[in-house]
Nucleic acid binder design. Sequence first.
DNA 1: TTGAAAGCGGTACCAG
DNA 2: CTGGTACCGCTTTCAA
Lengths: 357, 357
Amino acid sequence: MPESGKVKLVQGSKPTVIDIARHAGVSLATVDRVLNDRPGVRVVTMERVHKAVNELGYIRDTAAANLARQRVYRFVFLLPESTEEYIDALQQEVTSQSRSLINERTHVVTIRVSYFDSTEIAISLDNLDREKVDGVAVVAPETPTVRDAVTRTRERGIAVVALLTDLPSSPRNHFVGIDNKAAGQTAAKLMGSFSTVESGKVLVLTGSRLARDHLERRYGFDQVMEQQFPGFAVLPTIEIHDHEVLAEKILPEALSNWPDIRGIYSTASSNKGLIGFLNKELLDLVVIAHELTPTSQIALQQGLFAALISQDKGHIVRSAVRLMRSTVDAVPYNATQERIRIEIFLKENLPVNAADT
Amino acid sequence: MPESGKVKLVQGSKPTVIDIARHAGVSLATVDRVLNDRPGVRVVTMERVHKAVNELGYIRDTAAANLARQRVYRFVFLLPESTEEYIDALQQEVTSQSRSLINERTHVVTIRVSYFDSTEIAISLDNLDREKVDGVAVVAPETPTVRDAVTRTRERGIAVVALLTDLPSSPRNHFVGIDNKAAGQTAAKLMGSFSTVESGKVLVLTGSRLARDHLERRYGFDQVMEQQFPGFAVLPTIEIHDHEVLAEKILPEALSNWPDIRGIYSTASSNKGLIGFLNKELLDLVVIAHELTPTSQIALQQGLFAALISQDKGHIVRSAVRLMRSTVDAVPYNATQERIRIEIFLKENLPVNAADT
DNA sequence: TTGAAAGCGGTACCAG
DNA sequence: CTGGTACCGCTTTCAA
């Protein structure tokens, strides 16, 4: 400690590697080695450098580092091969952000793989070339196959973040998306509050009953309906396989079977069939759906939907990119900035062109 | 065009100033001069460079430029000197972000000035030293005094953005905050929907009737109440001067004057008096308030408030900073990223520690 | 009016 | 194991 006297902890400007080198009495190259845990430095030397770093409060200038390193981040978005409007919108968002991301030295591409074929997803993950890919943001169900593939991918040094639906069983998992249970609870609260009656049945629609996000939404929904609006009975989930059939057959049948249906909660992210049905029937139903898209936006404006629960795709893509970057750089990230909000859209707070692509 | 044959528009990597210099047959220094509109370049030379820029699709690497320039952004946040919880939270947010912003070469400080003293605000703005400040984010009422001061400030080359309340009459204005009319409309929709009855009176509270954001919220609120919930009568706005008096005297009196009050809409961003009152009266009221703060969060959790309309302070500060930066650099910004969302919080979608400071 | 060259804060190759 | 040094993309004197 009685090395070279006091150190100005608060300097006019931030200390640089040169300051560290001088302070530790070593060369730039050595400072760089210890800063980046590169081998070939004696422990004592390392300690001298670390001490200097701490004493001077050195923080690396990432911009300069990336410049020198000619660092390029190469990320892939692995999205479901589906016709869901929201997923398409997400892919478009990735594409549209990719333009400006290039100026931040990051390149992104999208790959589409069937959501329900875990093997396919695993293969896609395993096929990611470590020499060409630094990180992947994946939308996938939480199956053992997927989980193992994710683990392997991480072990190969590729950063993985889970998008839209969580993969909590994977080690060191990062999730970019909303809290789906809370989303379901919110939907229920809105459903009950927007109803002018206090009893009846509620229909639940989903894109797929297998998806974890659907299950979580449904769970939260049921919970609040039961606790706060016990007059309503929530019917078993109806799975949407074909929007045409839904509009023409399933929904009309359901409404004639249960004439006291008062509301519909659609956890799917594509609502064409539902909207088609609502358009011609003119019923007094409270409809809550997910994801703001050009189609659902119109339904909201027309009063077909009472509310929409959504997650901002721009935010999701930016967040995934930041998370992958901070993972590959092994630097911390700002959790509050990355929290994806459960957005509630009513006709009243719908921004102009909110769902523009 | 038949200059030197084809140009590879899509190269392996982005063109740099060196490529431009070579392509235009000039030196780096000259390229830099025209890129930064510095004087001392012949028109013909300028055109040669511009042509090269276009043909190669050159985009400047801001990080490298800032590094070379040793660019430092110095911004000030001019906030109201009030006891409003949200404003305090905002200042804390500025302070907490300032730490990491330093690593992005941007320094921020906060100044507090009375919101209602336009002269004071104008003086603060005029006192900003152009040599020491590059931009200012200001929360101020839209008075002629303020507007003129803002204009002068811009003319002196300091970037100005309006925070929370818009200053639409100022030329080249940037606004960071929610659409307050839509926020009022949303509040009304929630008020009407959450009510279990269909008629009665609704009380409106405000921090100050002078503030533009209050007027806009009130305007939107009245509009939707009238159109969609005509059974309700919205009473004149009550201004909160003292939370103590509000809780002890004004609210109890109002409720005994109009026993059929069914709801309260508080457009203020501090709700201590209101919460104090609700806490001891145990009434069946639908209360809608603004801004998620530690206090209001508890009120929501306890069921005292039915809903909260908020604007994310983290987003606001980041957005203001990005806007000031892009203004001083004269580069475009991403409008969708800067759109501040009208967030609706219910007990159900309240994230853990959402209002943490 | 123009160009050469020295940095900005880091990184990485090549000697020693 | 360590140091010297060229260089990343851009800016900015200082001369010419």
